[in-house]
Simulated assay, not measured.
Amino acid sequence: MFKNQDYSNPKIDLVQKSLHADCKNCFGLCCVALPFAASADFAIDKVAGKPCQNLQSDFRCSIHKDLRQKGFKGCTVFECFGAGQKVSKVTFDGVDWRKDPEVAKKMFNVFPIMHQLHEMLWYLTEALRLKATRSIHIEISSMLDKTEQLTQLSPESLIELDVPAHRAGVNTLLLKTSELVRTQFLTKLKISKKKVDRRGANLMGAKLKGADLRGANLRGAYLIATDLRGADLREADLIGADFRDADISGADLTGCIFLTQVQINSAKGDEHTKLPNLLSRPAHWSSKTNKIV
């Protein structure tokens, strides 16, 4: 079996540990700072900066156990990559936004920026774990350090940060990572890269049950409601791919790169879906549904 990952790096283990949401140490920022509109994902409209009607005084959600049943599926999909507790406890040193309108305004502006930086950290730490990227580990490590330093900036500096420019630099390394990983994998399998180049492809609702997508470039692909039951997605590049309501029951996603918990949460799967080690099986996945037939 082709193995492209090395999970024995203490430095990236420490960084990645901080990239998971710790709601107990957050002031409910995702429930306040972010807007959402009444849709299949949310039961109501909410503007940015306004607390969700379900947010309690202790920053807990009053319907947390029933979010999907109450029409708030979008909340069960979201992952802040640890940005919530970082902004609450580090950037603003534990100051509650409810106590100062000016602090609240800044905090709500900083949160989406920190969210983007932490997402970049997630991708960079993953890239550093890959054996195929050893030739560019120094470059990736340098970008990781730079991104970490940006997360430590003051609220004012974060608000002024040119996030798109920094993301462009990160993306250059992620593209190199994808090329190295997939080239090594596809060469071993004697598969042409042109055959599996589906970058940005519109595959919404496509019938790809049992498809061989090993090593595919699916960056930014639209996989909304796509039938991927039993599909083989090993070593595929899935960064930015839209998995909303895609059926990945029985699919093999081991070894794929740049897949996030958000994408997994938005898809449909079952106990037979094989996931990368760093991702968790969503609680709403049922073993009684999405069976391959």
Rank of each mutant, 00 (worst) to 15 (best):
C75F: 05
Q184H: 07
F27C: 04
H284T: 04
G28Q: 02
H166R: 01
V103N: 10
T187S: 13
I264A: 11
M120G: 12
R129I: 03
K99P: 07
P35T: 00
V15H: 07
L14E: 15
W97T: 04
V163Y: 06
K70V: 08
S249E: 01
H166Q: 07
K193P: 14
T273N: 10
N25H: 13
Q263Y: 05
H20W: 05
K70L: 07
V293L: 05
E126L: 02
T226V: 14
K193Y: 05
L208T: 06
S141G: 07
S88R: 06
T289H: 11
N217C: 10
T147Y: 03
P164Q: 02
I257L: 05
F258Y: 06
T273M: 10
L150R: 11
D13V: 00
L259K: 06
L203C: 03
C80W: 10
T76V: 12
R182M: 03
K73L: 15
D58M: 10
V77S: 06
V262L: 11
G49S: 01
Y7A: 01
K268A: 08
S18F: 00
K106L: 14
P112W: 02
N217V: 13
H20P: 00
G84H: 09
D227M: 11
A127G: 00
F258V: 03
K195C: 00
G215I: 06
T151A: 12
S57K: 15
K50N: 06
K193L: 08
K274I: 11
A40R: 10
L278W: 15
D145C: 00
K194N: 07
A231F: 04
Y222E: 14
V293W: 01
S57P: 03
N202K: 13
F2W: 07
I12L: 05
L186S: 05
T125K: 08
F42K: 04
K274G: 11
E119K: 15
S249H: 00
E139C: 02
L124A: 10
F42H: 09
M1Y: 04
H284W: 08
R214H: 12
A231E: 05
I292G: 09
Q263H: 04
I224E: 15
N171W: 04
A251C: 12
F111V: 01
G169H: 00
Y7K: 05
L275C: 03
I292H: 07
G250I: 02
G255P: 11
M1L: 03
R98A: 04
L117D: 13
K70A: 15
A241Y: 05
K194C: 00
S39Q: 03
Q263D: 10
C30Y: 03
A33H: 00
E235I: 12
G71F: 02
K209I: 14
R182A: 00
K73H: 14
A221F: 11
Q184W: 09
A21R: 00
K193R: 14
G84I: 03
L253M: 07
N277Y: 13
E119M: 15
V196A: 05
E79M: 14
K268V: 04
S280Q: 08
D66L: 06
S192T: 12
L275Y: 06
I138D: 14
F81D: 10
R60E: 00
L238R: 02
T273W: 08
H118N: 12
P51F: 09
A201T: 04
K190E: 06
K73I: 12
L128H: 01
D242G: 07
K291S: 06
D22A: 03
G250F: 00
V95E: 13
L208G: 08
D237A: 02
L144D: 08
C75Q: 04
A246G: 12
C30W: 06
F81K: 01
